[in-house]
């Protein structure tokens, strides 16, 4: 089931990239957030990708050949550490010196990441389309 295998691999990547875009938009939306349920300013989040693990049965079946793997989000990590201090005495969360701790999120960094996620997503759509096209061509044999 090679064609379906490609579809599954492509789908795993689309899912992973979608999670990544969700995390990026969360970071962008919370660039100015100074209060969170956990206390303190919002912490920048990022995704960690890993090749997807396979079940034992599949592993056994494919033990004689190296197997193509999909991708998945292993976990979403919060960046630890202090945010950047901005002088704003009128802010309700300002400290005694008039500084507010804001999330340390760079707009440029997030936008670059967003573009990369978009590029990866498109590349995977291309591979799914290739599989689809090959399957359709195979149906034309003997026509």
């Amino acid at each position: 089931m090679d064609i379906l295998g490609v579809m599954n691999i492509g789908y795993s990547a689309l899912k992973a990239q979608t999670t990544r875009v969700n995390v990026i938009s969360s970071n962008l939306a919370n660039m100015e957030t100074t209060r969170t349920p956990e206390g303190g300013p919002y912490q920048r989040k990022s995704v960690i990708f890993t090749s997807s693990s396979r079940g034992f049965a599949q592993e056994l079946e494919n033990s004689t050949r190296q197997q193509a793997e999909g991708v998945e989000v292993q976990r979403i990590v919060s960046q630890q550490g202090a945010g950047k201090m901005v002088y704003d005495p009128g802010h309700p969360d300002a400290n005694a010196e008039g500084y507010v701790e804001k999330p340390d999120i760079s707009l440029v960094e997030e936008m670059t990441d967003l573009m990369k996620a978009k590029g990866s997503y498109e590349a995977n759509v291309t591979s799914i389309k290739a599989a689809q096209r090959m399957a359709i061509k195979a149906l034309e044999i003997g026509r």
């Binding site: 295998g5 490609v6 691999i9 492509g10 990547a13 990708f49 890993t50 793997e69 990866s120 291309t126």
Partner: peptide, 27 residues
């Protein structure tokens, strides 16, 4: 040949899917 080509597509798409996985070696 067609059989192997469709298998190769799986390998290529796995590489594309893992294009940003840290530590992934190209298959």
């Amino acid at each position: 040949a067609l059989d192997l080509r469709s298998r190769k597509l799986e390998v290529i798409s796995a590489n594309i899917a893992n294009a940003e996985t840290p530590g992934y070696a190209r298959l």
